[in-house]
């Protein structure tokens, strides 16, 4: 689970475990909903090419007048989507959900808004709820906007043994934010994550699909400065 996960309340391990010795439960209620994340609720139905109604609209009628935006993959991505779906037997197209969500996240600003998830549901001919429940389960899917450069520092054992805490502290100071936050200019989001399979080259962090290993504070500085000058968004795929 990521720090900024708006679905935290519906996530498994935090259910009702409030009565703890010491520190309070992580699962404090957040007044976030799908609706709060986006201002538009209509998407295009891929096949019929007409606007479909999101079930969310029923819950948030006052938002109905909000701007409508057409959400559609580029032709190139759409071809990739078709190819991905064909990897699975007839009637098993739902299997393509994870790859499609990655593509959607890469194409639509690095996070999954409700309309984007509804669009993916329409492509796979499944219910939107089937997409929401999956998107909220996996920690690589962002359900809130993230900065252009998403920095994820591993803080599990091997990385911790070699100074991950120093890296996090240094980044917090340098960026002027706490972990889990995004800089006001929307450039950087800083997160801590669990083991990313680079324990032999610890400490490490990831930016988009790029692993940065054997980190030193100087290396971190250089990487941050490079991203500061870049206009583009870090991408997983």
């Amino acid at each position: 689970m990521r720090e900024s996960d708006p679905f935290e309340i519906c996530r498994r391990q935090d259910f009702g475990s409030c009565d703890s010795p010491g520190t309070p439960s992580k699962g404090e209620f957040q007044a976030t909903s799908f609706a709060g994340d986006s201002a538009f609720f209509s998407v295009q139905n891929a096949e019929k090419n007409e606007a479909v109604q999101s079930p969310l609209e029923v819950r948030e009628p006052e938002q109905e007048q909000a701007t409508t935006q057409d959400i559609k993959f580029s032709d190139e991505t759409f071809a990739l989507v078709q190819r991905t779906i064909r990897r699975y037997p007839e009637g098993r197209q739902k299997s393509a959900l994870l790859p499609l969500l990655h593509l959607a996240q890469a194409e639509f600003d690095g996070w999954l808004s409700a309309p984007v998830m509804d669009y993916v549901a329409s492509l796979l001919d499944i219910q939107p709820i089937e997409v929401y429940e999956v998107a909220s389960f996996y920690s690589m899917f962002n359900l809130k906007p993230v900065g252009k450069c998403l920095i994820e520092v591993c803080h599990t054992s091997s990385c911790w043994l070699l100074g991950a805490e120093d890296i996090v502290r240094h980044l917090e100071q340098k960026l002027g934010i706490k972990k889990g936050q995004t800089t006001p200019d929307g450039k950087f989001t800083l997160k801590t994550v669990e083991c990313l399979g680079s324990c032999g080259t610890a400490p490490m962090m990831m930016i988009g699909a790029q692993f940065h290993e054997n980190l030193t504070l100087e290396k971190v500085d250089a990487i941050v400065e490079e991203w500061d000058g870049k206009g583009e968004r870090s991408r997983y795929c």
Binding site: R87, H102, F137, Y138
Partner: peptide, 9 residues
């Protein structure tokens, strides 16, 4: 085929 996960141990 290769299928991609999304960050869940």
């Amino acid at each position: 085929y290769v299928q991609i996960g999304a960050g869940a141990y």
